[in-house]
Amino acid sequence: MAMQVLANLLIGLLWVFFQDDWSVLTFFSGYLFGLFVIFILRRFLPTKFYLFTLHAVFRLILLFITEIIVSSIVVISIIIRPKMNIKPGIFSMETTLKGDVEVTLLALLITLTPGSVVVEISEDNKIFYIHTMDIPDLSNSVLKSKDRFENAIKKVTRS
């Protein structure tokens, strides 16, 4: 991805040289042209076209924001209940993600989602130990959102 952005910037700079017009607007049109060139050549590049990756990143952020709002409402409704009958506990969850970046990203997202904290990750990066406030309800919702997070993360990191 980094190489593609660099190539795109280079094409934009070349465009400025060819036009001999040193303005931001010229550079921008050159950048768009470079985007078009890379889009045409995308099948011959080793990695995915980087706008697709950016799109996946954007989708991940959107998913994350909806998730954080939904689970915040759940947690707040638990907190302001007059009689708080919660069943907290630690449950284990397996993940199919591999590599430091993917596992870190998933742990970050799960920890940011209210009602669940990753307490420990096993040595082989396979099992997450997650503490939740209410085992029956929230562990199911964590498992569900985990699948969605995993798919979104895979779209970002794997080409």
């Binding site: 954080i68 709002i69 915040s72 947690v75 707040i76 907190i79 708080m84 919660i86 907290p88 940011l112 989602t113 209210p114 009602g115 669940s116 904290v117 307490v119 503490h131 939740t132 406030m133």
Partner: peptide, 19 residues
Amino acid sequence: LRLPDVYNRAHALSKSAAL
């Protein structure tokens, strides 16, 4: 203030604070 132990308090404090 209401939740019982350190783990549950971590949920309430850090997460809702993030939102």
